[in-house]
Design a protein around this nucleic acid. Structure first.
Length: 500
RNA sequence: GGCGCCAUCGUCUAUCGGUUAGGACAUCGCCCUUUCAAGGCGGAAAGACGGGUUCGAUUCCCGUUGGCGCUACCA
């Protein structure tokens, strides 16, 4: 049997380094065993999925040097590879479960479900659907359906017994069935949830090894049950640890840049970033830590993956990147890399257009536009404070701006302008009265080229990081403050939270 | 709260019952050097805690503690 693995990202935000890590492991495992590696887009969440995000994920993984044998961009015999295009397949499978009595229609309102969960929690019970709609007879269901009541389809789950999840790396993990919820398989909008789509697709795409993040361990019993209901052979499972912030919490952009785009913009070489992630998958006890993809594949053994969540250690990445820059590139190829990174003609033209009106000598250019080519800019707290906002409002301004820019669909001069104006509105100010700290945070200087244009050119990832650093410089925003401030930005708080 | 996963230097890790617990990053010192890097050499730095099992536990088992995840009509 040929080994087939996959990466199944959800296009709901920036391409995450964690996705790259999981993709790398899947890729190495498949190639090590002469198998295939697939890419499938899990875009069943219609509200949050975007084609820009999908594009960015594909581009980022390609940039890192990864490729796939089948996927939405390259096709393949098991397509389509985008879940939003597989609706008929899921409906057919949902019907099979319904017909066999393995799933049922549930008409319960969100309010009832919420009350039920609150009660269960208060009673120290595991949260689990109580089965009300399971008691309805044929007529009752038909009546409600005819009346146009919205419903979801849930899977039936045994009330007793134990489910054993076999994990390649962790061994047997036991769950009592009564702690496993009767998961929604089809939402009221007719789209499948992750659990159904994932199982159906993995089977139809002949995936033999499901290698995914640790956050899926607790839903593995649901997946096992679905395979059983369908009478399909279960693929092997392996759950990878989650990448962490330096404080050991799950890697999140609130505390750390998580987007591959950020590392690209910062001038990390793709080989270095890939090598860095690869170090978490091989045994490098011999002291050699410089490895290309080919060597990573050769040395890959899943036994080498430690189960403790590894901190994404930027200093070590920096060291690796430095070694790649000075050891792995000769001067001509180094020059090429720099040109590719900084020499984008359109970008340079934009920058120079902004600068032209503001210089007297060409030599003024260096200090005026240096911030376009920097990563973080350093600003002191007292410089930021020297404005028209008190300390709390200053921190609020930065926090709100972070939420706003994360909530933007498009990144361009006018969308950025809109975001910052909304922040000023929320503070009850005109933007020009709060502009100074933003200029300082983003450009490193209180006077510079036009801010919105500059931000549009610098890119969302670097801008977010500079704003985040400015906020941290002022002491950050406490959870309490964040909760209090969220309501000031319509919808952006929740959005940012969900995307974090 | 419920369920689950995890636990070696600050960080990434080696060790698959017996080691002076090894390497790498970061850090400190020295050397090299017109500066700064880079490079070379050296130092400091770890088995969370408590019980077992065993002739012997970092390693196996149990408990505690801690970290993390899940707990949605998000993935």
């Amino acid at each position: 049997m040929t080994v087939r693995t996959r990466i199944a990202p959800s296009p709901t935000g920036d391409p995450h380094v964690g996705t790259a890590y999981v993709a790398l492991v899947n890729y190495c495992f498949a190639k090590k065993h002469g198998g295939q590696f697939l890419l499938r887009i899990e875009d069943t969440d219609r509200a949050r999925s975007t084609s820009e995000s999908e594009r960015a994920i594909l581009d980022s993984l390609h940039w890192l040097g990864l490729s796939w044998d089948e996927g939405p961009d390259v096709g393949g015999p098991h397509g389509p590879y985008r879940q939003s295009e597989r609706g008929a397949i899921y409906r057919e499978h949902i019907q099979m479960l319904l017909d066999a009595g393995h799933a049922f229609k549930c008409f319960c309102t969100p309010e009832r479900l919420e009350e039920m969960r609150v009660a269960q929690r208060a009673a120290a019970q595991p949260p689990r659907y109580d089965g009300l709609c399971l008691t309805y007879d044929r007529e009752e269901i038909a009546r409600r359906e005819a009346a146009g009541e919205p419903y979801v389809v849930r899977m039936r789950v045994p009330g007793e017994g134990v489910c054993v999840v076999e994990d390649l790396r962790r061994g047997a993990i036991e769950f009592e069935w009564k702690t496993v919820d009767m998961q929604v398989l089809m939402k009221s909008d007719g789209m499948p949830t992750y659990h159904l789509a994932n199982v159906v697709d993995d089977h139809l795409m002949e995936i033999t090894h499901v290698i995914r993040g640790e956050e899926w361990v607790s839903s593995a019993p649901k997946h096992i049950l679905l395979y059983r209901y369908f009478g399909w052979e279960m693929p092997k499972l392996m759950h990878l640890p989650l990448l962490r912030n330096p404080d050991k919490s799950k890697l999140s952009k609130r505390k750390n840049p998580t987007s591959i785009l950020f590392y690209q913009r910062m001038g990390y070489l793709p080989e270095a970033l890939l090598n860095f992630l690869g170090l978490l998958t091989v045994n490098s006890a011999d002291g050699n830590e410089i490895m290309d993809l080919h060597e990573l594949i050769g040395r890959f053994e899943f036994e080498h993956i430690s189960l403790g969540g590894p901190v994404f250690d930027v200093p070590k990445l920096n060291w690796l990147n430095g070694r790649y820059i000075r050891e792995m590139l000769d001067v001509p190829s180094f020059i090429k890399r720099v040109e590719a990174w900084a020499g984008d003609e359109a970008k340079l033209a934009n920058i120079l257009t902004l600068a032209q009106a503001r210089i007297e000598r060409l030599s003024d250019l260096g200090s005026l536009i240096a911030f376009f080519f920097q990563g973080r800019v350093s600003v002191r707290a007292d410089e930021l404070r020297d404005g028209k906002l008190d300390d709390e409002n200053l921190r609020k301004a930065f926090q709100l701006s972070l939420w706003e820019i994360d909530g933007l669909r498009d990144w361009n001069v006018s969308s950025v302008e809109g975001a910052l104006k909304r922040v000023a509105d929320a503070l009850g100010k005109k933007f020009r009265d709060v502009a100074r700290p933003f200029y300082l945070a983003v450009t490193g200087s209180p006077t510079s080229v036009p801010l919105y244009d500059a931000m549009a050119i610098i890119g969302r990832d670097i801008v977010r990081e500079r704003l985040r650093v400015a906020l941290d410089t002022l002491g950050g925003a406490s959870n309490k403050e964040q909760n209090a401030w969220k309501s000031l930005i319509a919808g952006a708080g929740e959005r940012a939270e969900a995307l974090s």
